[in-house]
């Protein structure tokens, strides 16, 4: 699964630390998601969607190996 988290963060002018504080997670978690090392839970994905004011599908996208 790939994601556009870094791009969305740049659009909103948020650092990883800022976003982590908004979501109540660690900066390491945001970094791991951005690097595709960790797939967040549905709850966290929906929280990201709420912060960026876009649908979850606009942040996360399935790749061939996920299907």
């Amino acid at each position: 699964m790939k994601n556009t988290l870094k791009v969305q963060r740049a659009i909103k002018d948020l650092t990883q630390e800022d976003l982590a504080k908004l979501l109540g997670v660690s900066r390491q978690t945001i970094n791991s998601i951005e690097k595709n090392r960790y797939v967040p839970s549905t709850v966290l994905a929906l929280k990201l969607s709420k912060v960026f004011e876009i649908p979850v599908n606009a942040i996360f996208e399935l790749q061939d190996e996920d299907l």
């Binding site: 997670v25 660690s26 978690t29 960790y38 967040p40 839970s41």
Partner: peptide
């Protein structure tokens, strides 16, 4: 952990 979130749980 200091911040115990879902990544830490995983």
């Amino acid at each position: 952990e200091k911040i115990e979130d879902e990544l830490m749980a995983s």
